[in-house]
């Protein structure tokens, strides 16, 4: 198939970027979307132009590195997948495809389609852990039984891959789904309850400092999350935060 690509090109963080048009022929339907970009890049290199830089690594939907806004949707038109799992059979011959980086003040563009998502790291550093020593000898793993539903729900929250699609999708560029998933994972486990109040306050404060927007409950994040992280986590964080601040 033949495709008309419109891709955001930006030299570096300080340069001004713009959309550039490319026409690409010979795309096969069983290629992945990123392989289609690989082909474009090979063509660009052969012409002596700089290839389009984009983030990607595992190419199997788990590392959370790939991060493209495709035709106005994070990770493209299909649901519950990352860009690397998207295949060209979701497109038709002659389609125009608009490819942009995640857009958020907290995710500045580094180059072309690559953004700096270290804000997520800093949110986690602010409290996304349980303060146990790794070198010590903790109690036996089966000392505290955990109800299966809680363990499962905690796992579902922990399935977040930190790709940032929630922020990219949200009209407010809010990081609530990401932050709340981490808060929830620990809040649902007895070993995480001990620091729950402090954790949620610290993480929310860092989230605010990073310049993400506010949650207005549109639900876009949940719809675009490749791992199906639920809005329930946001409600849980709202609850946790409220009780943490009231109780002190």
């Amino acid at each position: 198939m033949k495709l008309y690509l419109k891709i955001w090109r930006q030299k570096d963080a300080n340069s001004k970027g713009s959309m550039v048009d490319y026409t690409l022929e010979g795309v096969e339907s069983d290629m992945s979307f990123l392989e289609m970009l690989d082909i474009l890049n090979e063509e660009l290199i052969s012409k002596g132009e700089e290839p389009v830089e984009f983030d990607h690594d595992c190419r199997e939907g788990i590392c959370g590195t790939c991060s493209l806004m495709i035709n106005g949707r994070p990770h493209g038109p299909d649901s519950m997948i990352t860009v690397c799992q998207l295949h060209m059979r979701s497109f038709n011959d002659g389609d125009e495809i608009v490819i942009e980086p995640w857009r958020a003040t907290a995710f500045p563009v580094i180059k072309d389609l690559i953004t700096d998502r270290s804000a997520f790291d800093r949110i986690q550093q602010a409290g996304g852990y349980i303060s146990v020593n790794t070198s010590g000898r903790p109690v036996d793993a089966n000392t505290i039984p955990i109800p299966k539903p809680n363990a499962d729900e905690s796992f579902n929250a922990a399935a977040c891959i930190g790709c940032g699609a929630c922020v990219a999708a949200c009209k407010n560029a809010s990081a609530m789904l990401f932050t709340s998933a981490k808060v929830s994972q620990f809040a649902l486990l007895p070993q995480g309850r001990i620091e729950a109040a402090e954790r949620v306050q610290n993480m929310v404060r860092q989230m605010d400092l990073e310049g993400f927007g506010n949650c207005t409950n549109t639900g876009a994040c949940e719809m675009e999350c490749p791992k199906g992280i639920s809005l329930e986590n946001i409600a849980r964080m709202n609850r946790e935060y409220l009780s943490a601040t009231l109780k002190g």
């Binding site: 903790p138 109690v139 796992f155």
Partner: peptide, 10 residues
């Protein structure tokens, strides 16, 4: 033991 105390949801 270590991972459970860290909150890994096995």
């Amino acid at each position: 033991d270590q991972c459970v105390s860290q909150g890994v949801p096995f």
